[in-house]
Amino acid sequence: MNVPKHTSSALPVGERLGFVAFVAVSILFAIFFLMPIIWSFANSLKPAAEALANPAALFSKAFSFENYRRLENVGAGWYVYAGNSILIAFGTIVLTVLVSVPAGYGFAKFRFPGQSLIFVVVMATMMIPFQSILTPLFLILKILRLQNNLFGLVLIYVTFQLPFSIFMMRNAFDAVPRALIEAARIDGASQWTILRRIMLPIALPGVATVAMFAFLNSWNEFLAALIFLSDQNKFTLPIMLVNVSSGIYGIIDWGALQAGVTVTMVPCIILFLLLQRYYVRGLTAGAVK
């Protein structure tokens, strides 16, 4: 018998052209989005003068870590700010996960009076623009003596992270089939065992997504950090970047700024790549029954 073989050359010409066009356009877009990152990185490795004179060049003969060294002289030194940022991001992730996982579990798997109302109220807080409540927040933190305090800032970030995170976790737990929980109950598992051994592992993409967003949002946040922190030693990386760019006498130290941007960006990129697999699944979990 003669079985026709399907190889790429067997594809109709139109389809093949379409595929080539698709790849070309995709590459174009990828370059479009990657270029700023690549430029920042490239410029951070040039001497200051070179970076200023020739910012668009990707490679230069003079390679140096000079910019990174100069970052140490910005305020308290970049590692202090990086340390602050890490503390804040870590605190935000931990608190957000600790609150949103049980909350999402509760909303997904238990029925209690006022459930939908409470859920709507939680979701509604997402609609309030952060800027509009800066003053009351500032006053509250002042009363709590948490103003100019890293933990106070973590609380603020967690507050704004929670509605989305609870929503996310509720969907993640909702997507766990009821029969699995019933099977586990018949197997004699306690409520706690069910959460730990069955629900959480299956809802892990949701947790990864929540952690990811908590990290990105607290790591990159600028306005609240600027307003609620006044002590130079407590600043975060985004504030440091502003300090670099408006350096001494208002001259922008282009090279140092790019070095700062690179330092800020690298953890985000690494984390994103690490969690990418979970993260994409998490966003769509529960979308299709």
């Binding site: 089939p177 029969a179 099977a183 109950r185 018949i186 197997d187 004699g188 598992a189 069955i198």
Partner: peptide
């Protein structure tokens, strides 16, 4: 259900 000493096979199997 865990205390009744029963085992159940579900329609969609419900494997973890």
């Amino acid at each position: 259900p865990g205390k009744r000493d029963i085992a159940m096979v579900f329609q969609n199997y419900a494997l973890y």
